[in-house]
């Protein structure tokens, strides 16, 4: 091959190696010299496998055979063939057949994709960070939801969640012509218990009441802490007002209505007022107001009982 062609190949910013049919190096351009530190005069006439030992694989040999047989071109990706030329850089390799005067040569082109690898790795690290951050945000989102809708002390729904769900239940009852019962519950002498035993005992009682209400109602009922020592239970899908009395009786007669605080038993009692939708009102605020009034009637009768609004 003439020198002009070699000069051109030396100007190309990619590795160019030409080997003969016996896989001995005929040409090794300046770029290859820079990348490998091996001079053309040192590698010329040497087997390509001796100079670039990472090419010494069976599939490389098979590819060469395929090129001779079919005249096809072969491509090796740096992603699947790491460190083919040097440990510092990654190259895609293209191999083509050149035929001249009944002789066969193979043109090996080494295209540097190291920067791509660096960028892709940076991108992957960035994606990983985003993924982890996203996971953390999801956990925080759950926590915020819990803080916004659930009572911190008892773990049951708070007033905000109660209103959200109550509105929907009333809409459903309105559509299906069904009944809803609302139980407004206030712990008897709660202020006195707090004053005598302290807030720690008061908190224990609030937790206990929340637990009783959950245990003695259905899963579809809604138990919420309305504020202070007031709780609300919303009972949808009942057929008649007698059913509400049964639920109220069950709660009133719960067996475990006491707590132990510093080995002392503190008995719990509460007063319950009941209002019914649609009989006593069409809005949730009206139903709460009526149930609250009924609860005061129960308190005025000495507490530890339930009353239906009249």
């Amino acid at each position: 091959m003439d020198n002009t062609l070699y000069d051109i190949l030396n100007e190309i910013i990619e590795g160019i190696v030409i080997v003969n049919e016996g896989l001995k190096i005929c040409f090794w351009n300046d770029y290859m010299e820079n990348v490998t530190g091996l001079k053309q005069e040192d590698v010329k006439e040497n087997y390509i496998y001796e100079v670039l030992p990472n090419l010494n694989k069976r599939y490389f040999e098979q590819s060469i055979q395929q090129i001779i047989k079919n005249g096809c071109k072969i491509f090796f990706s740096a992603g699947m063939h790491r460190s083919l030329v040097s440990n510092k850089k990654e190259f895609n390799v293209k191999i083509s057949l050149i035929q001249k005067n009944n002789s066969k040569f193979f043109l090996l082109e080494f295209i540097d994709v190291t920067n791509q690898f660096v960028r892709i790795n940076q991108f992957k690290e960035y994606v990983q960070e985003l993924y982890k951050l996203n996971q953390k945000l999801k956990v925080k989102e759950q926590l915020i939801k819990k803080l916004a809708y659930y009572d911190q002390l008892t773990g049951i729904a708070n007033r905000t969640l109660f209103y959200k769900i109550a509105e929907k239940l009333i809409d459903n009852a309105n559509r299906n012509n069904s009944l809803i019962g609302l139980l407004f519950l206030d712990i008897d002498k709660f202020k006195q218990i707090n004053d005598v035993y302290g807030h720690e005992a008061g908190d224990k009682i609030l937790k206990k009441v929340a637990c009783i209400l959950q245990n003695y109602t259905r899963k579809s009922d809604m138990v919420a802490r309305f504020g202070g020592d007031e709780f609300i239970v919303l009972l949808p899908h009942f057929k008649d007002s007698k059913s509400y009395k049964k639920v109220a009786s069950r709660i009133m007669n719960a067996e475990d209505k006491s707590i132990y605080y510093h080995s002392r038993e503190i008995k719990i009692s509460f007063s319950v007022g009941i209002s019914l939708y649609p009989e006593h009102g069409n809005t949730i605020d009206t139903l709460i107001l009526k149930a609250d009034q009924a609860m005061y009637t129960a308190k005025n009768k000495g507490g530890n009982q339930y009353c239906i609004f009249e």
């Binding site: 491509f75 090796f76 990706s77 740096a78 992603g79 699947m80 895609n92 994709v113 791509q116 690898f117 892709i120 991108f123 992957k124 994606v127 990983q128 993924y131």
Partner: peptide, 18 residues
């Protein structure tokens, strides 16, 4: 693989080319 999405990088394209 958990983080990987349906975006193909240049390296992915080269693997498919091979």
């Amino acid at each position: 693989m958990q983080y990987s999405d349906m975006h193909f990088t240049d390296m992915d394209f080269d693997i498919i080319r091979e």
